[in-house]
Computed example of a mutant assay.
Amino acid sequence: MLELIKRIDGSTQADVHDTLTLPYELRIRGRLKAVTDSGLDVGLFLDRGPVLRHGNLLQASSGEIVQVFAADEPVTTAYVESGLALGRLGYHLGNRHVSLALGRDEEGRYWVRFPPDHVLEELAVLLGATLSHHQAPFDPESGAYAQAGREHSHAHEHAHAHSHSHEHADDHSHEHADDHSHEHHHAHGHSHNDDHNHAH
C-alpha cells in the first residue's frame, strides 16, 4: 500500500504515477484508505490542512506522485445573471455556512454549486436562480483565510507594483514641469538684467 504523506505545490513539475478520484466528502479528510484509478491501495496520512482540490498532487513516502481528481457526484447548480444577482446569491447561500463552488460554463452563464439541499434550493429560486440537478465534480472555494498566505500576498505585490509605476510617472511629469518653469524664470531674469544694463 502506498502511504501518501505529503502535499506538493501544484506548480512543481512531477511525473504522476497514478490518479485518485474522490468525492468531496472524502477530499476533506486527512486520514483515509482508498483505491487509485488503476486499482492500487493507498492510505492518506496528511496533516490537517485545506481540502484536497481537483488536480492537487500528493507524494508517497516511497516517492511516487499521485494526482487527486474530484469525482462526479450529485450536485445542484444554480444559474444566475452576473453582477448583483450573482453577488446576492453567493452572499445569502454563504450565510448558511455551506461549501459553495463558483464558476461559469462554456455558454458564459454564471453558476453557484452546492450539495443537494431543498432549503438552499428554495432560497436560490427566490433569488432568481434557475436550478439544475445533475452529476458533476464538486470542487468548492477554499476558505479566504486558507488562501491568505500566498494568494493575498501575490495580489498585494501586484497592486504595489502598479502604484509604484504610477507614482514614478507622476514624479517624472512633475519634475519636467518644474524644470521648464525654472528655465522660463531664468531666461526672463536674464533679459531683464540686459535691459537694465542697456538703460545705464
Rank of each mutant, 00 (worst) to 15 (best):
T12Q: 13
Q13H: 10
Q13T: 13
A14E: 12
A14K: 10
D15C: 00
V16M: 02
V16S: 02
D18G: 02
T21D: 00
L22W: 03
P23K: 07
P23Y: 08
Y24N: 06
Y24A: 04
L26Y: 12
R27Q: 05
I28P: 00
I28H: 02
I28Y: 01
R31G: 03
L32A: 05
L32E: 05
A34P: 00
V35W: 03
T36Q: 04
D37C: 07
G39A: 04
L40I: 14
D41L: 11
V42Y: 01
V42L: 01
G43Q: 15
G43K: 12
L44T: 08
L44P: 00
F45H: 13
L46H: 01
D47P: 01
L52Y: 04
L52V: 09
R53A: 14
L57S: 04
Q59C: 05
S61Q: 14
S61N: 13
S61T: 13
S62N: 13
S62D: 14
S62G: 06
S62I: 07
E64C: 07
I65N: 01
I65F: 12
I65L: 07
V66S: 03
V66A: 04
Q67R: 15
V68Q: 04
V68N: 04
V68M: 06
A70N: 08
A70V: 11
E73V: 10
V75G: 07
T76V: 15
T76W: 08
